[in-house]
């Protein structure tokens, strides 16, 4: 059971994010929930890349000190690196929308934005 603990905690983090997205009424808290869920996914990708006792995927300038076989997987790391930056840009976009909504309705509470309801 202990071996699965990191994955379970990652799932718990993701569920916290989903809970915030679904149950909160303040739009800023919803955005925070999206960020938490996003980082849980990033964490999961990094954990998939990890292997027991692995080294960073960077060779030593003195060749032969670090062999390819002891490295962690570089591909998910590359994905996560770009995903973090894209996440920052989309967060900025969401916050810009929240600012516009606040300017229109004078509140961050989504239940008071009546005209948005279909």
């Amino acid at each position: 059971m202990n071996a699965y603990m990191p994955y379970v905690l990652c799932l718990v983090l993701f569920c916290i994010g989903i809970f915030a997205i679904l149950s909160k009424k303040n739009i800023i808290k919803i955005i925070l929930g999206i960020i938490i869920a996003e980082y849980a996914v990033n964490l999961f990708l990094v954990m998939v890349a990890y292997k027991a006792g692995g080294r960073a995927a960077i060779f030593s300038p003195n060749r032969g000190e670090i062999l390819p076989e002891v490295m962690v997987d570089p591909l998910p790391h590359a994905l996560v690196l770009t995903s973090i930056v894209i996440g920052l840009a989309t967060t900025a976009f969401m916050i810009a929308l929240a600012i516009r909504l606040y300017g229109k309705y004078g509140t961050f509470d989504i239940t008071r934005m009546r005209e948005l309801r279909g």
Binding site: P68, V72, P74, L75
Partner: peptide
């Protein structure tokens, strides 16, 4: 339960490394 921490590099990652 199907997730296990990897013990060795395989697949595309090994090719890249």
């Amino acid at each position: 339960p199907h997730l296990k921490m990897r013990t060795e590099l395989d697949g595309a990652g090994l090719e890249y490394a």
